[in-house]
C-alpha cells in the first residue's frame, strides 16, 4: 500500500519544483541568535511576574517601603552607571570583532567582565550594609529576591564573557564573519542591563515617592 509520488506530474505548481535545495536543507543552519532572542523574551516574563507582584504589594501598603527597610541610593546609583556603561563597552567589543580584530574584542570583553564583577561586588557590599534581611517584611523579600535573581543573571553573563575569552585564545575561533558566540553574549548582556534599569526604577526611584 504505497502512494507513488511523481514530481514530473507536478503540473499545478510548477514554481515549487525548482529551488529544492536551500539554505535550510543544505546543512543545519545557525539559528542560535533567534533562539536566544526567543528565550530572552520568555525570560523577561519571569521578571515581569515578580515586578507586577511588587507593584501590587506597593499599591496595597500604607508606607512603602515599610519603616526600617529604607534603601540607600548613592551606591546603587554608581552601580547603575557602571552597568549601563558596560553595555557600551561590550558593544565596542562587538564592533571590533566585526572588523576581525580579535585582540581588541578580547580587551573590551575583559573590561566588561571587570565592570560586571565590580557591579556584583557593589551589590554584595550593599547587602552587608543594609540593616535588614530576607525575612523582615514583604519589601525586603522583594528587594533581595529581585536583586538576587538579577545578580544571578549578571553572574551568568560574566561566565559567558569568560567563555568568549577562553575560546578566543585560539586564533581563528572567532573572525569577522564567524562570531555568533560573541554576538549572543552581547545580546544577553544588554538584556541584563535593561532588566536592571527597570529594577532600579522600581526598587530605588519609586521608593522616593
Amino acid at each position: 500500500m504505497t502512494t507513488t509520488l511523481d514530481a514530473s506530474q507536478n503540473g499545478a505548481y510548477p514554481a515549487k519544483t525548482t529551488a529544492a535545495v536551500s539554505e535550510s536543507h543544505g546543512e543545519h543552519g545557525d539559528h542560535r541568535v533567534l533562539g536566544l532572542m526567543t528565550f530572552l523574551a520568555s525570560e523577561s516574563l519571569m521578571f515581569f511576574g515578580i515586578f507586577t507582584a511588587y507593584l501590587i504589594y506597593r499599591s496595597t501598603a500604607e508606607v512603602w517601603p515599610p519603616e526600617g527597610t529604607e534603601v540607600e541610593l548613592f551606591l546603587p546609583a554608581i552601580n547603575t552607571i557602571i552597568l549601563v556603561s558596560s553595555s557600551f563597552v561590550i558593544h565596542m567589543g562587538d564592533l571590533a570583532i566585526k572588523k576581525g580584530e580579535v585582540q581588541k574584542m578580547r580587551l573590551w570583553y575583559a573590561a566588561t567582565i571587570v565592570m560586571g564583577l565590580v557591579f556584583l561586588g557593589g551589590q554584595i557590599y550593599e547587602y552587608t550594609e543594609l540593616g535588614y534581611g530576607l525575612s523582615t517584611n514583604v519589601f525586603s523579600s522583594c528587594f533581595y529576591v529581585m536583586t538576587g535573581f538579577h545578580g544571578l543573571h549578571v553572574f551568568v553573563g560574566v561566565l559567558m564573557m569568560m567563555g568568549v575569552l577562553w575560546r578566543s585564545r585560539r586564533p581563528g575561533h572567532y573572525s569577522a564573519t564567524k562570531h555568533t558566540g560573541v554576538e549572543m553574549t552581547e545580546i544577553y548582556w544588554h538584556f541584563v542591563d535593561i532588566i536592571w534599569i527597570i529594577l532600579f526604577v522600581l526598587l530605588y526611584i519609586l521608593t522616593l515617592f
Binding site: L45, M46, F48, G49, P66, L134, S135, S141, V145, F149
Partner: peptide, 27 residues
Amino acid sequence: PVLAIGLIMLLFDINFGTGFFRPEMGG
C-alpha cells in the same frame, strides 16, 4: 515563566522566610 517565578516565590516563602504570600508580613 510567570508560573516559574510564582513557584520560586512560594519556595522562598516555605524555606527562606520571605513574606510574599504571608499577610502578616505585608504579603
